[in-house]
Design a protein around this nucleic acid. Structure first.
Length: 154
DNA sequence: GCCAACGTTGGC
DNA sequence: GCCAACGTTGGC
């Protein structure tokens, strides 16, 4: 099983929304970055787990664990003229943007804050992509060792 | 193919 | 609200 970290702004869509969604499941739409798209389309597998990370909020950090319940498929919001994430260059016959479905597995007992993760950036979490200066990727792989260590902080 | 301009991300 | 970092766009 692979592990991931998926960022979201809780003011737009956060763990509260996911917890309230039918079957605690949602389509992870709106990703418009090619590197992240490739992971959604080619690498994420049903059964993989992902940290739900809240960004652009008072206390950024990991708040929950999600499960990938449907593998990559075309993101229909790219074809919707009225949608904020509409992309006129995405062709239905050759879709440019993909998404997966995720289900909330469980919320963490507490938020594992970015500050706390940073405190381990030189040791246990060395090399973690989230912590790399300037990183803005909304989806990143998380190594088995990093995954376990972060959960041990809970 | 280069690179300046621009838009977005996201911590602070 | 600021701003650094980075991806994308488009003129040349």
């Amino acid at each position: 099983m692979q592990h991931w970290l998926m960022k979201t702004e809780p003011s737009t869509f956060g763990v509260e929304h996911l917890a309230a969604a039918p079957r605690r499941t949602t389509a992870w739409d709106g990703v418009r970055n090619f590197q992240a798209r490739n992971m959604l389309r080619d690498e994420m597998r049903r059964g993989d787990e992902a940290f739900l990370y809240h960004s652009s909020t008072e206390v950024p950090g990991v708040v929950a664990i999600m499960r990938i319940v449907k593998e990559g498929y075309p993101d229909p919001t790219a074809f919707d003229r009225k949608h904020h994430h509409y992309d006129p260059d995405s062709d239905r016959a050759d879709p440019r943007w993909f998404m997966v479905d995720v289900q909330l597995k469980r919320r963490l007992a507490r938020t594992i804050t970015l500050e706390e993760l940073r405190a381990h950036a030189r040791k246990e979490l060395a090399g973690m992509l989230l912590l790399r200066p300037g990183n803005r990727l909304s989806i990143t792989p998380v190594s088995e060792a990093h995954w376990k260590f972060i959960l041990s902080l809970e």
